[in-house]
Simulated assay, not measured.
Amino acid sequence: MPNVLRIGAVAEMVGISVSSVRNRLNPKSKYYDPTFPKPFRLGLTGKGAVGWDKKEVDIWIEGQKALRAA
């Protein structure tokens, strides 16, 4: 499995829709989550495709599991 995930793969891993991923990243959304993993640019120009580090997404998921036990 690749170490860089695109938005669809992130949504699938977390179990939410692509639009929900975008909402969690948008500070103006009522669903904004400052702890949600941030994407990084994949292109050289700083525009276009973005990806997420799989390890960061895995860590975030583990953190969410830990919250339920607290």
Score class of each variant (00 low, 15 high):
K54V: 04
G48E: 02
L67H: 14
P34I: 05
G15T: 10
W52S: 00
S19I: 10
G15E: 04
D33V: 05
S17M: 05
V21T: 03
I59G: 07
G43A: 14
M13I: 11
E62I: 12
P27V: 05
V21P: 00
G63V: 06
A69E: 14
A49F: 01
S20N: 13
Q64A: 07
P39H: 00
M1S: 07
L67P: 10
R22L: 09
A9L: 05
P27H: 04
N3W: 06
W52F: 05
R24T: 05
A70R: 09
L67D: 10
K38N: 08
E56R: 06
K28T: 13
N23A: 15
R68F: 10
F36H: 03
A9C: 08
N26W: 09
K55D: 11
R22I: 11
F36G: 01
R22K: 11
P34Y: 08
V18M: 15
G46I: 03
V4P: 02
F40C: 09
D58E: 15
L42M: 13
D53C: 07
V4H: 03
E62H: 09
R6W: 09
A49S: 13
N26K: 06
M1V: 14
T45E: 10
E62P: 06
V14C: 02
W52L: 00
A49K: 01
V4M: 08
A11D: 03
K55L: 14
F36Q: 04
K28R: 15
Y31F: 11
V10L: 00
S17D: 12
R41A: 11
K38Q: 15
E12V: 10
G46H: 02
K30T: 15
S17G: 14
M13L: 15
I16T: 07
W60V: 07
Y32M: 03
R6P: 00
I61Q: 02
L42K: 02
V57A: 03
I7T: 03
K28Y: 12
W52N: 02
A9Q: 12
M1W: 06
V10M: 01
V10Y: 00
P27G: 03
R24N: 04
Q64C: 12
A49E: 01
L44K: 14
S17H: 11
N26V: 11
A11G: 04
N3C: 08
K54A: 10
P39D: 04
Y31C: 04
A66C: 08
W52R: 01
S19M: 13
S29E: 08
N26M: 12
Y31W: 12
Y31D: 12
E12C: 09
S20E: 10
Y31G: 09
R41G: 06
K47A: 07
K30D: 14
N26E: 14
T35M: 09
I16R: 03
E56S: 08
G51D: 01
A66K: 15
I7L: 01
N23I: 04
G8D: 15
N3M: 11
I7M: 01
R68G: 07
Q64K: 10
K54E: 05
